[in-house]
């Protein structure tokens, strides 16, 4: 079973993603900020990381670098309400940049694409 890490500070959103992705048949792990995410990546092996940008303690951009320095190959999707971070070159190291939407179809499709490409 493919393992996915959801990094999102907003609890309700996080829970929504977890439920939705579980229903898609993924094993879903969750982190409330960048720091937690980096800690989890240290111990676990994920097939995909979904990363919010604006978070307390450690934001998504910092976490992105740190995760990649642990595991260069893990696919990372930046999933944010901000469309303007797309122009920040720090986000270019991510595999995908998706603006948040209530319809999770785009996110799900991208996860599917990245996960299947890995295997």
């Amino acid at each position: 079973m493919k393992k996915i890490l959801i990094v999102e500070d907003e609890q309700h959103q996080r829970e929504l993603y977890v439920m939705e992705l579980q229903e898609e048949g993924y094993e879903v792990d969750q982190a409330a900020n960048g720091k937690e995410a980096v800690d989890k990546v240290k111990v676990n092996k994920y097939d995909c990381v979904v990363l919010d940008i604006r978070m307390p303690e450690m934001d998504g951009i910092e976490a992105l670098g740190k995760i990649l320095s642990r595991d260069k190959k893990v696919p990372i999707i930046i999933y944010t309400a901000y469309s303007n971070y797309k122009s920040n070159f720090m986000t270019w190291t991510a595999d995908a940049y998706i603006t948040k939407s209530s319809n999770l179809k785009e996110l799900k499709d991208k996860i599917k694409e990245l996960v299947s490409a890995r295997s």
Partner: peptide
């Protein structure tokens, strides 16, 4: 506009997501 968009988008994503559910 950008700030409002962000501030509003987060709750909207949540509301929309749960409505779908």
């Amino acid at each position: 506009a950008s700030h409002i968009a962000h501030e509003i988008r987060n709750p909207l994503v949540t509301v929309g997501g749960y409505s779908r559910r």
